[in-house]
């Protein structure tokens, strides 16, 4: 398994889209280093001929009839919006 080297916290925080304070970076790096060291024990297990489990009881091909059904009304969808106007979500400007 990968790392005995510490986690690249800036890279991962960027992927996760979370701004971390310097204090959080230091603390999380250390704590996650401990957790990753603990996880290293999985290297002992021979998994060469084992299939992965994504779900304990895989249910496949779950289809429904392709029929239109009512969704949530607009006012309910927008009721929790941080900002909305004219039945739209308002966000900061994306394109110049």
């Amino acid at each position: 398994m990968a790392s005995t080297h510490p986690i690249d916290i800036d890279y991962v925080a960027n992927l996760a889209r979370i701004a971390l304070t310097p204090g959080e970076k230091e603390r999380f790096s250390r704590q996650l280093g401990d957790v990753l060291a603990y996880i290293e024990q999985l290297n002992e297990v021979d998994v060469s001929s084992v299939e992965p489990t994504a779900h304990a009881f895989p249910v496949v091909n779950v289809w429904r009839e392709d029929e239109p059904r009512p969704g949530l009304p607009l006012e309910k969808v927008l009721a929790n919006a941080p900002a909305s106007r004219e039945q739209m979500f308002v966000v900061p400007k994306v394109v110049e």
Partner: peptide
Amino acid sequence: TYVLSSGYYDAYYLRAQKVRTL
């Protein structure tokens, strides 16, 4: 995010799913 990130997926996530099978 780390265990799913490029280069680590097989070592962590996939391996964990296999041990889950066991």
